[in-house]
Design a protein around this nucleic acid. Structure first.
Length: 778
DNA sequence: GAGGCAGATCTTTTT
DNA sequence: GATCTGCCTC
């Protein structure tokens, strides 16, 4: 399903599940994969509304993989008690690996190296097959540490986030019998947000749907915003090749936003060249125009928005949960928080990881991990000297090298610490005692009947952690931290109450750890809470709000400075804005500030290119910094509009994405890509030319993009794009709705919105005229 | 070994 | 701005 924003995707997915079940498909054979737990929970809720609670497997890719891995851990050299390391712990393990190899990290920051490895894993590259790109020192370092890192992971019976998926993918590739079994077991698969799947995820889905290709995926290439994580729209484009009998369904009708909002979103996204043409159709009224506000400073921006919200709240026209404020980076939230707080407006910052990122929470969870998996060295390092037990860096270094020589875990080494040369008597005793403490707690942890909350309580008590926090009344909120830890105990208790083992080897502690390890930002966001939501654009995917504010749309921030010189990344940034705009149901306000206090410095920047691209008949430009005559802005807009016209002609005809119909081209790596720029070219050229494409179209990346602008411009000289003009009262024909007449036009040019009264039952509908959905009826 | 301090460093988005 | 690092002193 190619499904535009607000087209009822979740509804389609849930109804499909419900339909399968009522058609007699056993619920255990259905797997529904999404990207956040939130989305999965929502799906589950809606499915049980339709057909009652069902044992359908619903969750994130990572959760699904984690459970599968637990059942088959032996196949990849792990035990079912394996730990999941979060990026921080994984990073520090990577650091230890580098140190072991004596690699200097001064010129290659560790998170950069981690990023390269993560990226490679998501491409399903192995440490052996990984090839450093020439002239990239980070790659060279990655090439060398990766194997050591992986070895250490294995010895610690641990995986990182990426490994969860990679292990499953490899398992499916290497074990044909198991693959067949799992394929048969998970017969019906549904994947949401398919445009954001990467190679590993693709591999997993593919592996489970060869014998039983009952696969339903939904996605919108225009909302692909995880390219940096290796997601690739090629998964959508290749779909029809891998599953030749696939049917493509387009959901183009938007039930969410006003036509002004949709028009603006569409105008913007038309500037992307690499996309499947797709229409946005709506019956909705125009609503208020999308507002573009230019403020003098980031503080003005925050104050203005807070004032507007406070005003709407006090006159009763809105309630706090109607509002969302979206931004590019988390760091941008601060001034908004301050402004909202000073006006007493309740808000929630959607950054759920915060809780699980807190030191005290991580310490407590690390203890649980160590109890579950005694080989989890990273967890041990985290808690071994908290509260202080007199075990310092020196002793730990000795312990580490001894353990690594003897090939034992740190915990095993700790038990022997008294005998390890170089470790002082005092530290040695402390380590031995630590090991003994672990033994005591582990005894309590044993047995699947044990409650996680009780165990956690014992940990806090016996390790002296709770006492440490209680006594640390002074400087930095030992009280708060204590409260947080107690909150974790409560969470564990609640978890224990609802926990239902689905398989015999399911245990509460393991599941609890899995849950804490795999929470996402948006998972903590609570739609019920009546608060203004503050979140990143990425986190907003899949949500909707009556009123949306897009802030800090400035050059260098919204097209992020690291994206500006790369055309593909610019397109992703543009999609990000597209996602942001289409979150809005009734009002969208985009803003930029001339001067912004950011990262401790003050920066002056120009309004985002995207603001000018959005500007048109559906928008108004205001604010203290708005050009008085609107001339500068407007002229800028006009120039952009010419470009917009070129781009819109690219996608003027919505048929390009029909199954197998669109022209496609093969890249050297064997992928099939559809490029709209060639669509545009083809559209007006003779059909014969289809096979001999100009060399320029074959080139990609920077070259192609530079070429495209100039090349396309010159080519257009000889190729007149089909220009249609419409006027009031004109008779038109729509392929689906039949004939009608235009009874209203708002705006001008290819983006104008026309209202059509159809003769048939379709009634009155609105269209973006330039989209080619309508033809003149003679 | 613990704790405190100054200076360096680095800042996209996330399961 | 915030956090981490290395260095210093007790």
């Amino acid at each position: 399903m190619l499904a535009g924003p607000g087209s009822g995707k979740t509804r389609v997915v849930t109804h499909r599940i419900a339909h399968l079940i009522s058609a007699g498909v056993p619920a255990e054979q259905i797997v529904a994969l999404s990207f956040t737990n939130k989305a999965a929970d929502e799906m589950r809720r809606r499915v049980s509304e339709l057909v009652g609670p069902q044992p359908v497997e619903m969750g994130t890719f990572h959760r699904f993989a984690a459970r599968l891995l637990r059942k088959n851990a032996r196949l990849v050299g792990l035990t079912s008690d394996y730990s999941i390391l979060d990026p921080d712990d994984a990073g520090s393990l990577l650091k230890r690996a580098a140190k072991k190899l004596g690699l200097s990290l001064t010129h290659t920051p560790i998170d950069r190296v981690a990023g390269v490895i993560s990226r490679a894993k998501n491409e399903l590259t192995t440490p052996e097959s990984f090839e450093p790109r020439w002239g990239r020192p980070v790659d060279e370092v990655a090439k060398r540490v990766w194997p050591a890192y992986q070895q250490m992971m294995l010895e610690a019976n641990s995986v990182d986030f990426d490994d969860l998926l990679v292990h499953i993918a490899r398992m499916l590739i290497d074990n044909p019998d198991l693959r067949r079994m799992l394929d048969a077991r998970h017969r019906w698969i549904l994947v949401d947000e398919y445009q954001d799947t990467n190679a590993v995820q693709y591999c997993i889905v593919r592996g489970l749907s060869i014998d039983h290709p009952n696969l339903a995926v939904t996605g919108d290439p225009d909302q692909a915003i995880y390219g940096w994580r290796g997601a690739s729209i090629r998964n959508i484009l290749e779909f029809e090749r891998d599953y030749p009998s696939a049917t493509v369904v387009k959901l183009e009708h938007n039930y969410r936003s006003t036509s002004n909002i949709l028009g603006t979103a569409d105008r913007l996204i038309a500037h992307n060249s690499r996309r499947k043409p797709k229409r946005l159709i709506t019956d909705a009224a125009p609503g208020s125009p999308v507002r573009i506000v230019l403020d003098a400073s980031s503080h003005d921006e925050a104050d203005r928005i807070a004032d507007e919200i406070a005003q709407a709240l006090s006159d009763g026209s809105r309630t706090p949960r109607d509002f969302a404020i979206l931004f590019r980076t988390n760091a941008l939230s601060r001034s908004l928080e301050v402004a909202l707080r000073s006006r007493g407006v309740p808000y929630q910052l959607v950054r759920g990881l915060e809780f699980f990122k807190r030191r005290e929470i991580r310490d407590a969870v690390a203890w649980l991990r160590l109890l579950k998996n005694p080989r989890d060295d990273e967890a041990l390092l985290r808690v071994v000297n908290v509260p202080p037990r007199g075990i310092g860096k020196q002793s730990l270094d000795r312990l580490l090298s001894w353990a690594s020589d003897k090939r034992v875990s740190l915990l095993e080494a700790a038990a022997e610490a008294a005998r390890i040369p170089g470790i002082s008597k005092r530290s040695g005793t402390a380590l031995v005692q630590f090991a003994r403490l672990h033994g005591e707690l582990a005894a309590q942890a044993g047995g699947p009947t044990g409650s996680v909350a009780a165990l956690l309580d014992a940990v806090l008590e016996k390790t002296g952690y709770r006492r440490m926090l209680a006594e640390d009344g002074g400087d930095e909120g030992g009280e708060d931290r204590l409260a947080n830890v107690e909150e974790l105990v409560t969470a564990a208790r609640q978890f224990g109450e609802t926990f239902q083992p689905t398989t015999p080897d399911d245990d509460a502690l393991g599941s609890f750890l899995e849950t804490t390890a795999l929470v996402a930002d948006t998972d903590v966001w609570d739609a019920q809470e009546n608060r203004v939501s503050l979140m990143t654009l990425h986190a907003s995917k899949g949500l909707e709000f009556p009123v949306v504010y897009l802030v800090a749309m400035e050059d260098g921030i919204l097209p992020h400075e690291r994206s500006i010189d790369q055309p593909e990344q610019m397109e992703e940034e543009r999609r990000l804005v597209f996602v942001g705009i289409t979150r809005g149901r009734e009002e969208v306000h985009a803003s930029a500030a001339r001067m912004r206090d950011y990262r401790g410095t003050r920066r002056i920047s120009a309004p985002s290119l995207f603001l000018t691209e959005m500007t048109g008949t559906e928008t108004v430009v205001t604010g203290t910094e708005a050009p008085a005559s609107a001339a500068t802005w407007a002229r800028w807009g006009v120039v952009e509009d010419d470009y917009a016209q070129v781009a819109s002609d690219d996608s003027a005809d919505g048929t390009g994405a029909a199954p197998g119909g669109g022209p496609s081209m093969r890249r050297p790596d064997g992928l099939v890509l559809e490029l709209d720029e060639s669509d545009a070219y083809e559209e007006h050229a003779s059909p014969k030319k289809k096979t001999e494409r100009p060399a320029s179209a074959r080139r990609r990346g920077l070259d192609a993009a530079i070429e495209r602008a100039t090349d396309l411009a010159s080519r257009l000289g000889g190729l007149q794009p089909v220009k249609r003009t419409y006027e009031m009262g004109q008779r038109v024909r729509h392929p689906e709705y039949g004939e009608g007449s235009i009874c209203g036009i708002s705006g001008t040019g290819p983006r104008a919105v026309g209202t059509v009264i159809f003769d048939g039952p379709a009634g009155t509908r609105k269209f973006i005229l330039g989209h080619g959905a309508l033809e003149p009826a003679d």
